[in-house]
Nucleic acid binder design. Sequence first.
RNA 1: GCGGGUGUGGCGGAAUUGGCAGACGCACUAGACUUAGGAUCUAGCGGGCGACCGUGCAGGUUCAACUCCUGUCACCCGCACCA
Length: 803
Amino acid sequence: MAIIYNHKEVERKWKAVWDRDPVNMPSKDKKNYYCLDMFPYPSGSGLHVGHWRGYVLSDVWSRYKILQGYYVLHPMGWDAFGLPAENYAIKMGVHPAKATAENVENFKKQLKEISAVYDWDKEVSTTDPNFYKWTQWIFVKMFKEGLAYEKQMPINWCPDCKTGLANEEVVNGECDRCGSKVTKKNLRQWMLKITAYAERLLEDLIPLEWPEKVKKMQTDWIGKSYGAEIDFPIDGVDEKIKVFTTRPDTLYGATFMVLAPEHEAIKAITSDDRRAEVEDYVFMASMKSSVDRLQDKEKTGVFTGSYAINPLNGAKIPVWVSDYVLADYGTGAIMCVPAHDERDFAFAKKFELPIIQVIIPEGQELKELEEAYIGDGVMVNSELFDGLKATQAKEAVARYLEEHEIGNKTTNYKLRDWVFSRQRYWGEPIPIVHCQKCGAVAVPEEELPVLLPEVETYQPTGTGESPLAAITEWVNTTCPECHGPAKRETNTMPQWAGSSWYFLRYVDVNNDQELISKEKAKEWVPVDMYVGGIEHAVLHLLYSRFYTKFLYDIGVVEFSEPFTRLFNQGMICKNGAKMSKSKGNVVSPDELVARYGCDSLRIYELFVGPPELDSEWDDRGIEGVYRFINKVWNLLNDNINKSVATTKALEKIKNQMIYDITTRLNSFHFNTVISAFMEYANKLVDISKNHGGVDHQTLEVFAILLSPFAPHMAAEMWEKLGKTNSVFENSWPIYDEEKMQEDEIEMPVQVNGKVKGTIIIGLEETKDSVLSKARELVLSKIEGCTIVKEIYIPNKIINIVVK
RNA sequence: GCGGGUGUGGCGGAAUUGGCAGACGCACUAGACUUAGGAUCUAGCGGGCGACCGUGCAGGUUCAACUCCUGUCACCCGCACCA
């Protein structure tokens, strides 16, 4: 009679045990391992089964590492500054600090349902003054190193969130957070000079054990390209305009030049008769949002009335203004080679500008172009460079330009400096004081943190000022340098500020002297395994790398990459869409835990599909896992009071089981690890029922293997098997390859590549004997035919080719 | 347009180096036990009566292809006037 496993009782029991006495880590002389989840924003809506996926995965991995003998750090914390708490505060009239504290409480309660081995005594929150003291400290350090600077410039502005945004936060012209169309606003900003780290951010990606996709996204975002800057004198005006090109080889094919509408030389070079039209165009361009500018594929533009002189051959080429040239990339001006660039070609066609081809495909004649020719070839129309291959000409022209001081080789990046200030309340105050006399002065390190003051209204002003600006008693202060009257900076930091370095703080949470002590840093960081969603590929993950490199440069840590290994779990979808409150397709773990237990849900989260891919959630699927749990429970109970001898067959299955589960786990195939558990459970049940029972040794191994996945039941099994220590105090079982070996092998036999049946052969059987058995098996199929060939792959397959 | 990913039963998905396609599970069908079954157990479950045919589609390499090569289609994700 089957017993129903009482998950409620068992889980309650072990949760209580672990609350009192958390899972013991192995002794400290073992190697350390740091396994980290991207810390959550504690939203009011709580956790759904999609959130569980990554947390379960990293917990299984942590527990596996514990069993492998590592001293594991697996902490959890809160990325608690940010807009949602503030918006909630505005709507409900609750202070964000209060709302955040409540959400954290609720989140923590829900997270505890997972029964992960989190080190709760190492919890951090970005909103804790003891934490953000160090967030501010890093800013001060950056300021002193010249990496944090103020700039008045048009920046991305979200009209709904009423704050400036970083480039990384604008997705397809929309606010990453709320989806509103992003506009431009000219504001005084605090910027971080991430561009100073562009090269290192790019190069250091190479050796990281990260998904290629993320590395690629960061590489593209940094966007390095090689080329040359070339000076073009303007005919009749004392101006030179510098352009950037990746194709100096095409210089003889330049037939016009285009400036971005924001280019500062426009005023000086525009002729009087063109001035009205040019000013109109520039004005219209400034009114268009970046989205509109991107979406208008049809080229527009105006002629300035001026001509630039090609420095190589003296050709006069007209200078135009068009919004297809970006002001903030390269020099904001380009030389246009319509013959060899699609965009220039489109522009030339529209405004009937000349097209001069300077590269022809090898072995072909010059003929009129239907479209821009982008490919490789041989130089023509290029005076002394004629006949060279274009690839060689690129270098040759660049060298010539340098020798004649017309231009120079250069490298460009798409990466822009980081717009770091936010005109919002719920963030770290930027620790700067503005003094009439001394300018911007950093708050002295010993005075940190600059506490976020209480305010009456959190409402963003929309004027480009933070709500903090209204608190005059806070704003007015004295200059740390001259002690004269001064005003505090009222902008706050973006949510990314705290999350860019939090992983360091877990290691040394209570240190009030340093951000992290040297010793602890050496022991624990960088993070060995970082688990989280792909959505931070160019945000959090890029910023964290930048911060880490900076902290390395100022000697805080001794490594420059924060996350050695990164794993992006796939999303959980329902009805084909990402699970989210707004889509209304959220599945709550609470009911599933109540009905099937934490262990079942943990296992189902892994079983639902390959961990790196998105998976569709089906509530019914968990039934199968629940049956598996019960099956294992009954297997245990059927054998617990028997003393079954350890037979060769049981040894074999035990070792095979260890092998299969370990190899699949090592390659991160969690879904097939679960399949393996089910297969071996089925096999053991069969042995238990039909072949004399299962020995305790095998059951013990099963419990240990299962313990990272179903910790409660494994602990209960362990106890029922008469053990007094914790199941987690074991070592991960080792398989014995010899004992895994089968003593006979079932081999498929093919005729002409089609399987016709199988034969059983002994381990030592000769090729001749095997082949004769095979022929016998397929006798009826090969009768009357000539055997052309017999393929014999030992232990794999036999293929008899006949005619 | 560029880059990346994915196409396998009714569904989620398996398949080390090319070597028995569909493991494991869901759903479904039949039976058993039951007052009952949304519990449990047993059996079946790609298509076809069959020889055979089947991994998006069309070719190719090979004794042998989900796996390698060429071409092609569909869907998803990222980037997108970066000169």
